[in-house]
Simulated assay, not measured.
Amino acid sequence: MAKRENLQLLASISVKNRLGEGIFWHAASSSVWWTDIHGKALFQLHWPEQTLRQWPVPERISCFSLLNPADPMASRYPLLVAFAPGLALYHPDSGATLWLAKPQQLSGNRFNDGRVDRQGRFWAGTMVEQPAADNAASGSLYRLDQQGCQQMLSGLRIPNALCWNRDSSLMYHADSPTQQINRYRFNPASGDIGKAERFATTPAGTEPDGAIIDAAEHLLCALWGGSALARYAPDGRLTALYSLPVSQPTCVALGGAKLDILFVTTATEGLSAEQLSLQPEAGNLLIYQYPHHGLTEPQLAAMPWQQLAKRFAGGAK
């Protein structure tokens, strides 16, 4: 077991998110974006100025991406979002929404973790929020690309830790309650994935949440319930545990001019008054100096958004 280490804390942004998630670095604006799922809010923090913007949203957003500025639709709908029931283009200032897909119409399920792959496709998974009587693992992982929205994995409870290595030969993904991070052979040209292989198991009492791959090809993962981040070598060895002052870290991003500033979203959801009193920074955005560097965030590819929306409106959901 790797020894616990402390990172240098640069800032703690007091946003008090119920369930902060989906954070990513946007180099063009020198800012990080993230969502508070249950708080129904979007956030943008400029770094290093620490200026914060916040937008209320009509439905819970679990993950999202900015459209490529060269995309003809970007001025009308700057964001692609996974609302709780489905995928849509969205403008946070005007509220304009263009629905693209609602692929899983199951009561009690909602969208959760998602990310853009290095070829510009958008991936997002659905989780079991309110189990049915049969307690089935009915969540799925979906891929949205020029051909539409396609189911890639099924039988999930809480999809998380989605990320790709530098050359896109491997995809990583976890079903959080299993405490296991899986690895899949990935075809960057087609977006197809191979069979699941066990990559790593998180420490006892923790679950894998949001994850990224850093420039050294190590996987950095938020440990829900673990008050820590775990860093795994490409062979699955746990090489570092970074201690945090909160028990529920949710997602991570690396940004800044040198891609060595670590941003960590956190949650207050489910914590008792006593637990919250012991974790005054729960729900904050935590910002650290990271001893390694990150990889450039991929850009979302331009897609035939109007065609996807017409298919959805026509019943091809």
Rank of each mutant, 00 (worst) to 15 (best):
D113V: 03
A174C: 13
D117E: 10
N135T: 01
F111N: 06
P188L: 01
A132M: 00
I158C: 10
M171R: 06
V128I: 03
W164K: 03
Y142W: 15
E197S: 11
M152K: 09
G120E: 00
N165K: 05
G155N: 12
E129N: 14
F111A: 04
L106D: 07
W164E: 06
Q179M: 08
R118I: 00
Q179K: 08
T178F: 04
A101E: 05
S140G: 05
A196D: 12
G148E: 03
A132T: 06
L144H: 06
G148M: 05
L141D: 01
M171F: 13
I158D: 01
A132V: 01
Y184P: 05
N135S: 12
Q104G: 03
T126K: 04
G148P: 14
A174I: 04
L170H: 12
L106F: 13
F186I: 02
Y172W: 09
R115S: 07
I181K: 04
W164C: 05
Y184S: 00
L141R: 05
N109K: 13
Y172M: 08
N135W: 04
L156G: 05
G139L: 02
E129T: 01
R143E: 01
V128G: 01
A124G: 09
L106W: 06
N109D: 13
M171H: 12
A101H: 11
G139V: 10
F122W: 04
F122S: 07
W123D: 05
A161F: 12
N165M: 10
R110K: 08
G120T: 03
Q130H: 15
N187T: 04
R115A: 12
N112P: 09
M127G: 02
Q180G: 06
G191I: 04
P103T: 08
G108F: 15
Q150D: 10
F186Y: 15
P103K: 09
Y142H: 11
L100N: 00
Y172N: 07
E129I: 01
S168G: 12
Q179V: 04
G191S: 06
N187H: 10
G108C: 13
N112D: 08
A161L: 10
A174L: 07
P188G: 08
Q130W: 11
F122E: 02
W123L: 12
N135I: 00
K195R: 10
S154D: 14
S138C: 13
A124D: 02
T126I: 03
P177H: 10
N109R: 09
L106N: 04
R183N: 06
T126D: 08
D145P: 14
K195C: 05
R157G: 05
K195Y: 09
N187I: 00
G139E: 09
Q130C: 06
